[in-house]
Amino acid sequence: MRVLSLLSLLVLLGSCAAASERATKLVARQAASKDGIIVFSINDFEEFAAAKGRDYHLMFFLNAHYMAKNADMNLPKLRQEYALAAQAFKRGPHPNEAFFIELVYERSKDVFQRLGVQQLPFVFHWGPDAVVREGRSIKVAKSSECGPSIKAYPWPAEELLRCATGNTGLAGGEVDRPSALKHPLFPVALLAFIVVGGYAGWLAYNSPFVKITPLWALGALAVYWFATSGGMYNIIRGMPIYYRGQNGKLVWWMEGRSGQLGAEGFVMGSSYLFFSSTLASLTYVVPRIRSSAARGIASLVLVLLAAFTAMRILSTYSNKSGINMRTFFSFYH
C-alpha cells in the first residue's frame, strides 16, 4: 500500500514538474514574441494544448494567410486587435497563467480538421480541463467561443479581452492602443508643425501664384467633378472601380439594375461636368466671339452637345433605376 502511494506521489510530482516546464517554455516564447502572440505548429499543439495536467489557459486565434486579402473577413486587422488583447492581458496580475496563441491553417491543417472549423474567424478559450483524445475530433464548447456575441467587427480588443477574462476567471490589464498622441515627442512635433505650417501659409498668402484666378476655377471644377462622381461614396463603401468577369475581361460598367461600379460614377460625373461646361460656355464664352456667324455656329454646337449629354444622362438614369422620366427629352426614349 505504501509502495502504491509512493508511486502515485512520484507520478503526481512528475506531472506537476512537466506542467511547470511547459508553462516555463510558454512564458519564454511569449517574451520573445513582438506582439505577445505565440504561433503554434501541430507539434506545439500536441505538446502544450493536448497534454494532460496543464495548469494554464490558452486562447486560440485561427488564421489563414491565403485569406489575408479577403476584405470582408479583414483577418490582418482582427489579428492586430487580438494582439492588443494579448498585450493587455500580459500587463495584468496573471501574465503567466494564460497565453494567446495563433494557429495558422497553412502550418496546422490537421488541427483545423480535427476542430471541424467551417469558417473563419474563430477565436476560443482552451482551459486546463479541456481534453484532447489522440486521433479524434476536438470539441470546443459554444460558451468558450469568442465573437458570435460581439456586434462590432473586426472584433475589438476590449471585447476579446473581456471574453478571455470571462472564460479564464483571471483579471487582465487595460487595452493600450498605439497613438501618435502618446509619443513623448508629440508636443515637439506639434509645435514644429504649427511654426512651419504658419510660415508656409504666410508665404502662400503673399505668393502671386495663389492669386491666379484660373487655378481656383480649375480647383472648384475638380471638387465638383469628384463630388458628383461619388468619389467619397467609393472611398467610404469600398466600391471597386472595376472587376474581372468570368471570362477574365475587365468589367467597367454593369448593365441594368444589377449594381454599380466606381467607374460608372466617374463617367456620370464627367457627363455632369461636360453638360455644365457647355451651358457656361454659352453664357460666358460665346458672347465674347466678335463674328456673329461664328457666335451662331458655336451656340448651335453647344446646344446640341448639351442636349445630347442631357439625353444620355436621363437614359442612363432610367436604365439604372427603372424609372422612365417624362421630360422635354422624352422623345429620345
Rank of each mutant, 00 (worst) to 15 (best):
M1A: 12
R2P: 15
L4Y: 15
L10C: 08
L12P: 03
A19F: 02
A28D: 11
R29K: 10
K34A: 15
I38G: 03
I38N: 11
F40A: 07
N43E: 07
N43F: 05
F48M: 11
A51R: 02
F60W: 05
D72W: 08
M73T: 02
E81V: 05
E81L: 04
A83W: 03
G92P: 04
G92T: 04
A98M: 15
A98P: 03
A98Q: 09
V104D: 07
Y105Q: 15
E106L: 10
E106H: 09
V111M: 13
F112N: 02
R114V: 01
Q119F: 14
D129Q: 05
A130N: 03
S137Q: 10
V140Y: 02
A141L: 08
S143E: 14
G147V: 02
I150H: 07
Y153T: 03
P156L: 06
P156C: 10
A157E: 10
R162W: 10
G166A: 04
G166M: 03
G166L: 09
N167F: 07
G172M: 06
R177G: 06
P178E: 06
S179M: 11
A180F: 14
H183E: 15
P184S: 01
P187R: 04
A189L: 12
F193H: 13
G198Y: 01
G201V: 06
K211G: 06
T213V: 14
L215E: 08
A217D: 13
F226S: 10
A227Y: 14
N234Y: 12
I235Q: 12
Y242E: 10
Q246R: 13
N247A: 09
K249T: 13
L250S: 09
W253Q: 03
E255Y: 14
G256Y: 04
S258Y: 13
Q260M: 12
Q260R: 10
A263C: 02
F274Q: 13
S276C: 13
S277H: 09
S281W: 00
L282A: 00
V285F: 00
P287Q: 15
S291V: 02
S291E: 02
S291K: 01
A298P: 00
L302T: 00
L302E: 00
V303W: 10
L304M: 08
L304K: 12
A306R: 00
R312D: 11
I323C: 11
M325R: 07
M325T: 14
